[in-house]
Design a protein around this nucleic acid. Structure first.
Length: 494
RNA sequence: GAGCCGGUAGCUCAGUCGGUAGAGCAUCGCCCUUUUAAGGCGAGGGUCCUGGGUUCGAGUCCCAGCCGGCUCACCA
């Protein structure tokens, strides 16, 4: 803090000077009549003469992000949302008090101005200011004007500074908001009801993941931050809502990486009477139409490569993909020893005691997933790794399920829901066996969920989409931390 | 959790072989009424991440730790 004091003390001194001149350094209401972006759009292309004839008056507010003063006049650049507009501050045009403000102005301060639009000698679209209202004093200096703020730790810890200094970061989070709004509109248009289900669960369910634990004092019970909303949303299908969705946070007590944050945003939606094939079509339409709407195209750049979101996307069965990518004989899918040998040959590290489906899944993750750069629906997952999904009619060892991969990452997971309460109970019991065998992420039996299914759930298809990863794709970001406003970091030392 | 890389002024960064810690921007003073990385002249500003050690002497070498990034592990 001490090293900051020089600049900070200077600014506090100016703050006092403003007070002495009768100006509130932390003001109140200001009637903003115009926005910089809208002025640029409406008048920004008009030639000098036209602006001089029209004498357009405007009132805008914003943060001073550049200041070029000379003698008794100067230019400031105001940042108003995503837009920047230059204002001209000339002593002759301002009251004595207003010019006092100009003299004490620092980078970072907020001001409101009223004036007329014109073009400077260098043809810059500018507001000639006649009235100036001081709105708020910044006591800390802004990062350097040319390089901005690049220190990654500071960018994440003090996102407010990142947003001030880096317009492209501002843009990413604006896009994030528009993507989520677009998804919401898409679903509501198709008859979905948006719902909110509990974030605190007595039994963490709906996914295989380690939960965060918390405690409710009055009830005297431990609760878990949800790892997925799935089991609650299906209760609502039982309750008779035919189409529901929820966009909200899930919490998983696991590692942090460029594609994992402990809290992340998930869209889950459920469609009565539909199956997973219907969701394949819906997913293609949702993602490609969002791309068209927000980016104006369905072939989008991601980390130096083009991703083709134009439907239709590739469909590839889980087992076919494993066999084709590795040129394996189908018998490895049935024989644990053969699978183990194949894994070793392919340099896929596996526990020699692992079950057949675990070995096969390791091979899938190691060899197939990285190849799924263009959008691909991997279908027909084995039942052993799909405890909530409906069995295939044609093969009881597989499920009516798909996962969507783009850029080598899982983006969505969907299936025809298992609505047979007796089968579901058996699956939960199978999970309990896996849990006892040491898999602490196997699903827990949720008796109330089973009771709900026993009241009858219509045939239903459900899907979860990882919103942060989708946003990474749309905004061409390599790290989830760059699409989450306040990513999780170790607490700062006091 | 492991490996690699990084942490020096408010910000962006240099710092040679171990020998008094630097630049640009920002800040302060003076000049300047159309600039736009404005300009000119002058000035101030440092827990070199922290703690040990080696040394006559450490930003620099060694050890331990903290924080961050990336990769891996983990995460169906």
């Amino acid at each position: 803090m001490d090293e900051l004091n020089e600049q900070r003390q200077q600014r506090i001194k100016k703050l006092d000077l403003l007070r002495e001149a009768g100006i509130a350094p932390y003001g109140s209401r200001f009637e903003v009549k115009d926005r910089a972006g809208q002025l640029l759009k409406q008048h920004g292309e008009k030639p000098k003469d036209t602006l001089e004839q029209e004498k357009i008056s405007c009132t805008i507010a914003g943060r001073v992000v550049a200041l070029r003063r000379f003698g008794k006049a100067g230019f400031a650049v105001l940042q108003d949302g995503a837009d920047r507009l230059q204002v001209y501050l000339k002593k002759d045009h301002l009251s004595e008090q207003a010019y006092t403000v100009v003299e004490q102005l620092d980078l970072g301060d907020w001001i409101g101005v009223t004036g007329t639009l014109f073009r400077t000698k260098t043809n810059e679209f500018t507001v000639e200011v006649h009235q100036l209202t001081f709105l708020s004093k910044a006591l800390r200096p802004l990062p350097e004007k040319w390089h901005g703020l690049t220190d990654v730790e500071t960018r994440y810890r003090q996102r407010y500074v990142d947003l001030i200094a880096n317009p492209q970061v501002h843009q990413i989070f604006s896009t994030r908001s528009r993507i989520i709004a677009g998804i919401r509109a898409f679903l509501i248009e198709r008859g979905f009801l948006e719902v909110e289900t509990p974030m605190m669960h007595p039994i963490p369910g709906g996914a295989a993941a380690k939960p965060f634990v918390t405690h409710h004092n009055a009830l005297g019970v431990d609760l878990y931050l949800r790892i997925a909303p799935e089991l609650y949303l299906k209760r609502l299908i039982v309750g008779g809502f035919p189409r529901v969705f929820e966009i909200n946070r899930n919490f998983r007590n696991e590692g942090i990486s460029t594609i994992h944050n402990p809290e992340f945003t998930m869209l889950e939606f459920y469609v009565s009477y539909a199956d997973y094939q219907d969701l394949i079509a819906l997913t293609e339409e949702l993602v490609s139409s969002l791309a068209q709407q927000l980016l104006g195209k369905t072939v989008i750049p991601y980390q130096g490569k083009d991703i083709v979101l134009t439907p239709p996307w590739r469909r590839w069965s889980y087992h076919q993909a494993i066999l084709e990518v590795n040129a394996l004989d189908p018998s490895v899918l049935q024989d644990r020893e053969k699978a183990l040998a194949a894994a070793q040959r392919l340099h896929v590290p596996v526990d020699p005691k692992a079950s057949l489906f675990t070995i096969i899944n390791e091979i899938f993750e190691e060899t197939v997933e990285p190849n799924l750069q263009q959008p691909t629906f991997i279908t027909d997952y084995p039942i052993d790794i799909s405890p909530l999904a409906r069995r295939k009619d044609s093969d009881a060892t597989l499920t009516d399920r798909f996962e969507l991969f783009i850029a080598g990452r899982e983006i969505a997971n969907a299936f025809s829901e298992l609505n047979d309460p007796l089968d579901q109970r058996e699956r939960f019991e199978g999970q309990a066996v896996q849990r006892e065998a040491g898999d602490d992420e196997a699903h827990l039996v949720d008796e109330d969920f089973l009771r709900a299914l026993e009241y009858g759930m219509p045939p239903t298809a459900g899907e979860g989409i990882g919103i942060d990863r989708l946003i990474m794709l749309f905004t061409d970001q390599a790290s989830i931390r760059d699409v989450v406003l306040f990513p999780q970091l170790r607490p700062e030392k006091p």
